[in-house]
């Protein structure tokens, strides 16, 4: 188990470092300056700005300074949100994004796994076909379509829920549903396939031969191996939720990390974009680690 974790870390750290390097040089290689977006600046003001943000130094020196600051958790100043550091912006947005993503992941896993079980228990039955249809539809429902459509129906037409903004738990319901739907669909499909394969396996017959109840057979013997594909999907799902959150936060006007990212990207706010990308890469690597741990729990063979 420890060997797996060490190996994972051995790839994760260089990957993260490569992300930092790649995004740093990409951003510096970009044509145009962040200050272009506003009115044309005279040369003196521009030079002063560049100097103030250290953009006139040699590239390697800029990199060195960036890395040194990064090691202390300092992502540098935001170029667009003046008076804010990137770290402060992240500290503001991250909790909202994490809550949104965490709730969506929980909803997706619960509905997806129970839907998949309902489908697999009676293959070909009406519940199976209904779950299959719903899951096929759900995986094809991107947040940028479901978000506005849900807002249209439940906020504008029915007036049940707030249309945008962050006031109380009710304002999270629509964003979480819109974000969770595609992931729930994928989890349901994976659970359905995994479980129907597992139920046909020899060790399940052994458990039935012992005279166990169908519930005990499912719970103790079939579910763990059946969920292995779901666990492998966990890291991609986390990535999908993070990207989905970008759109959902924009649609529902939630002041999360994703919205800062889009604003940063549109305004060429390099330090902000880099900070968010590095943070997201770290989060995804972390989810990979969690997935590996769960994997070992479900399948002792993976522990080596």
């Amino acid at each position: 188990m420890r060997a797996i974790l060490l190996r994972r870390l051995a790839t994760a750290i260089p990957t993260l470092f490569a992300v930092v390097l790649a995004s740093f040089f990409l951003m510096r290689a970009a044509p145009g300056s962040p200050f272009d977006a506003e009115r044309p600046l005279d040369a003196a003001t521009r030079a002063a700005l560049d100097h103030a943000y250290g953009l006139d130094r040699p590239l390697l020196e800029q990199l060195g300074r960036y890395l040194a600051n990064l090691a202390q958790g300092d992502f540098g100043p935001s170029l667009v949100y003046k008076d804010f550091t990137v770290t402060a912006l992240i500290a503001q947005g991250l909790p909202i994004s994490l809550m949104l993503g965490g709730l969506a992941l929980a909803v997706a896993l619960m509905t997806g796994v129970s839907g998949g079980i309902a489908g697999a228990l009676r293959p070909g039955g009406w519940s199976d076909r209904a779950v299959d249809f719903a899951a096929s539809l759900a995986v094809a429902l991107p947040g940028f379509v479901t978000g506005p459509v849900l807002a249209l129906i439940f906020a504008l037409w029915l007036n049940w829920l707030p249309v945008a903004g962050l006031n109380g738990p009710a304002s999270l319901i629509l964003p979480v549903i819109a974000l969770a739907l595609p992931v729930a669909g994928a989890v349901a499909k994976l659970t359905r396939t995994g479980l129907s394969e597992t139920l046909a396996q020899d060790h399940v017959r052994t458990a039935r031969a012992r005279g166990l109840s169908p519930f005990a057979v499912l719970w103790r013997h079939a579910l763990a191996p059946a969920l292995i594909p779901v666990v492998s999907y966990l890291a991609p799902a986390a990535a999908g939720l993070l990207t989905g959150a970008v759109v959902i936060e924009t649609v529902f006007g939630l002041p999360g990390l994703g919205r800062y990212f889009v604003q940063g990207a549109l305004n060429r706010d390099y330090p902000l974009v880099m900070g968010v990308v590095i943070l997201y890469a770290g989060l995804i690597l972390f989810f990979n680690l969690i997935a590996d741990l769960l994997y070992g729990l479900l399948d002792p063979r993976a522990r080596g």
Binding site: L26, A29, A239, T243, A265, R268, V273, V276, I284
Partner: peptide
């Protein structure tokens, strides 16, 4: 695989 795909594409769009 461990990279946030979409962000890479977005960064590429922004840069180029």
């Amino acid at each position: 695989y461990a990279l946030p795909f979409m962000f890479v594409v977005i960064v590429l769009m922004v840069v180029f």
